[in-house]
């Protein structure tokens, strides 16, 4: 199977581990992910907060470059922006004309966009099940989807907006035990991580505390911003609110990869800030060869 891949900027930096583990899992599944040539940033929050036309034009340029092939996206923020641009452009001829004037070429808004969770959990369900070598037995996980995958539902059409289960089912296939918990789609504070971290600490505290109350071993994410906020800022939350969590925060591709027999190094497990070593070894999963 082959999809045109739009990695997005985070996957070359703070989410390098998401990138590596995605490619490792793809290799196990025979999934090819050639990148859109010369892809550029989708504009993310900065564009839609400043200039609605730019916020549609940047994704349009990328989606046009995909030449009508289905685009695979890993980052939830990119996914949301690409889907939003499609929604605006395909739904309103005047927006389509405006965007065409900005980009310099017409784009119809019809290039399909799929998140990796949809590809692995819907398009390749059988291949994923067949690739599991080391089931993650006894690992209790809280699947955390964040905001941007499932909202607004008219735009993303991703799973169920209030109670998505795609990631839960994938982790279950991998032998883990996903728990039912109420903060699957709460907001972590997203890009306020840099511009006003007090928002991120307040919002992430609720998510971490709820995951802890659900008695999980770890949190699983599908978004670079969610992962960074819950992992890198976990200690800041502990200090500010006087709590102790010690909850590793994985990308779902890292746990799937472990279950498929990928090495810790292929999955960049050494990049995680909250060390997962003790947890994984207690479940009989080796961290040997982990590197950043």
């Amino acid at each position: 199977m082959s999809y045109t891949f739009y990695p997005g900027c985070s996957l070359d930096g703070t989410a390098k581990d998401f990138h590596r583990s995605t490619l490792a899992v793809a290799a196990k599944l025979g999934l090819e992910l050639p990148e859109i040539e010369d892809w550029i940033c989708c504009g993310s929050t900065a564009a839609h907060s400043s200039d609605p036309l730019l916020a549609d034009a940047l994704p349009a340029q990328n989606l046009r470059a995909a030449g009508g092939r289905t685009v695979a996206v890993a980052c939830a923020s990119c996914y949301s922006r690409l889907k939003m641009a499609n929604h605006h452009i395909a739904g309103d001829p005047s927006v389509r004309a405006e965007v065409a004037r900005v980009v310099g070429e017409d784009y119809d808004g019809l290039t399909p966009v799929r998140h990796l969770l949809e590809i692995l959990g819907q398009d390749m369900q059988r291949e994923v099940a067949a690739a599991i070598r080391r089931p993650l037995a006894g690992l209790r996980v809280a699947c955390y989807y964040g905001c941007l995958l499932s909202r607004p539902p008219e735009v993303t059409q991703f799973d169920d907006a209030e109670n998505p289960t795609l990631m839960d089912k994938l982790l279950e296939t991998a032998g883990a035990t996903p728990v039912d918990w109420p903060h699957k789609t709460e907001c972590c504070g997203a890009s306020f991580s840099i511009s006003d971290s007090s928002i991120v600490l307040e919002l992430s505290e609720r998510i971490l505390s709820m995951a802890q109350a659900a008695q999980v071993d770890c949190i699983v994410t599908a978004c670079p911003l969610c992962q960074l906020n819950l992992d890198m800022r976990q200690e800041d939350v502990e200090v500010k609110y006087g709590r102790r969590y010690d909850l590793p925060v994985f990308y779902f591709t890292q746990l799937l990869g472990l279950a498929m027999g990928c090495s810790a190094s292929e999955l960049s497990l050494g990049s995680l800030v909250v060390e997962p070593k003790v947890l994984l070894e207690s479940k009989g999963l080796s961290m040997a060869g982990a590197r950043a």
Partner: peptide, 11 residues
């Protein structure tokens, strides 16, 4: 300015 654009409201 503090709105995180999480889209819970409109959903």
């Amino acid at each position: 300015w503090e709105c995180t654009s999480c889209h819970t409201c409109v959903t």
